[in-house]
């Protein structure tokens, strides 16, 4: 630590903190979809990372098309592409639920294996469609560059964008869950599936839409992911373990817990990464989570759920 002055340290703290915040945003977007699915259906979707990759490749695809045929529309394509990323992931998720998941609700461990198989197939499809090499989308100009509040501090705009997106998506999800008719049914199904069915909620349909929505949110996560990193066929699977830990650590069926645990994990990881090597920072973070989970298996925050 010897070589740093106090103001240097402050800048480092701000910038590391910010890089933690972008990691937090991606983790949060990934985990939101997973948390809704896991909380409501108890289904572990191992292919969740691949739905994120779908979103990322959608952006890449749109950016290439726009660049080639409609160069004048470059500043605007991103908005359309995000909606497309959500829709495509949503549709594929809907299909997957219909073909695969709904047959396995009684066997959660088997769902885990089946979706792992699905993720392998999806990775290979990405590889044959887009090649094994990592690609990156051409970003519109307004996402490039950085914001400099002081000469020492340098905050990239794309990071700010990802953060904004994650806040917006989280708010929309909360709004839908707690203020809409659909959300009411979802919460009813989560809390007590049998009673929800008894009062006339079509729990099967709710399941399908929830699963698809979770996948769609993963698509948005992928869209945001392209702005800060390049995409390869296996990009999604790199985040899947972290995402699961976020959901389990936060406590299932608790959105607030998911947000808090994504924040804790991302900040811990990026600050530790600065002081140790990259690998050790991650090891220490994951170990800490596991030890905390061993002492408190239900996670940080729990909401009352009748099993």
């Amino acid at each position: 630590m010897g070589g740093y002055s106090l103001s240097d340290l402050w800048s480092i703290l701000v910038m590391q903190g910010f890089s933690g915040l972008s990691l937090f945003s991606v983790l949060l977007l990934m985990a939101l979809g997973l948390a809704i699915i896991f909380g409501q259906m108890g289904v572990i979707n191992m292919a969740h990372g691949e739905f994120m990759t779908i979103g990322a490749y959608t952006i890449y695809f749109f950016s290439k098309i726009t660049e080639k045929y409609f160069p004048g529309l470059m500043p605007f394509y991103f908005v359309v592409a995000i909606i497309a990323a959500f829709s495509i992931a949503f549709l594929i998720g809907y299909l997957v639920e219909y073909v695969l998941i709904r047959h396995l609700y009684k066997r959660p461990l088997d769902t885990l294996l089946a979706t792992w198989g699905l993720s392998l197939i999806m990775q290979q499809i990405f590889r044959s469609m887009f090649g094994a090499r990592e690609v990156s989308a051409t970003l519109p100009n307004w996402l490039m560059g950085s914001w400099k509040p002081t000469p020492d501090i340098d905050i990239p705009l794309n990071g700010l964008f990802v953060m904004a997106m994650s806040i917006v998506v989280t708010l929309v999800v909360v709004l839908f869950l707690y203020r809409s008719n659909w959300g009411l049914k979802v919460r009813a199904t989560t809390q007590n599936r049998i009673m929800a069915g008894a009062v006339g909620i079509n729990t099967r349909k709710i399941d399908r839409i929830t699963f698809a929505t979770g996948c769609g949110i993963a698509g948005i996560a992928g869209a945001c992911f392209t702005t800060i990193a390049s995409t390869g066929p296996t990009s999604g699977s790199l985040y899947i373990v972290d995402t699961f830990l976020v959901v389990v650590f936060g406590g299932s069926a608790s959105l607030f817990g998911t947000v808090a645990s994504a924040f804790t994990i991302a900040q811990a990881q990026s600050i530790l990464t600065f002081f140790m090597t990259n690998a050790m920072g991650k090891v220490v973070t994951l170990l800490a989570i596991i030890i905390i989970l061993m002492m408190r298996p239900e996670g940080l925050f729990t909401s009352k759920v009748r099993k």
């Binding site: 695969l100 294996l113 089946a114 699905l118 392998l120 999806m122």
Partner: peptide, 13 residues
């Protein structure tokens, strides 16, 4: 990978 993935799904289902 296709084959492996299909194996997971088919065996489980």
């Amino acid at each position: 990978l296709f084959f492996m993935g299909a194996m997971f799904i088919v065996v489980v289902m």
